[in-house]
Amino acid sequence: MTDTHARLARLSAARWRLAVILTAAMTAIYVGFTLLIAFNKPLLATVLVPGLSLGILLGVIVIITAWVLIMIYVRWTNRHYDAAVADIRRDHLHPTTQSPRGGDPGLHPTTQSPRGGDPGLHPTTQSPRGGDPGREGR
């Protein structure tokens, strides 16, 4: 199952990359906003139209940015990551049968390893998808 391993590692790296980029973006934007407040109060005091200062506008933009960053992450994971995990998981659990539950053949990679390999990685009591009975035991 080195295949499972390698594919998971690749997927893991992709998600980690996105997560770090988004976290760094949020940190940079927020720290930048705070630095502006600390060092350039007059700039933020600029009134753009009556009632709206640059500070208020930027503040609202920071809040909206937080929403947008979360939406980017949730969309990517909901669309790509979940499908990829389901795919790897299916191949991992049923290495000899192609798509046993008929799920999403379009996403099925052709490089599937037919061997069972690496029993250490293969939990014997694994229940397919979301089975919960094992939960209490850990």
Binding site: T23, M26, Y30, F33, G59, V62
Partner: peptide, 15 residues
């Protein structure tokens, strides 16, 4: 400034 500080932690939580 405070409200924003309390909100920007959430992208970190989800990511």
């Amino acid at each position: 400034v405070y409200s924003i500080g309390f909100l920007v932690g959430w992208p970190v939580v989800v990511c």
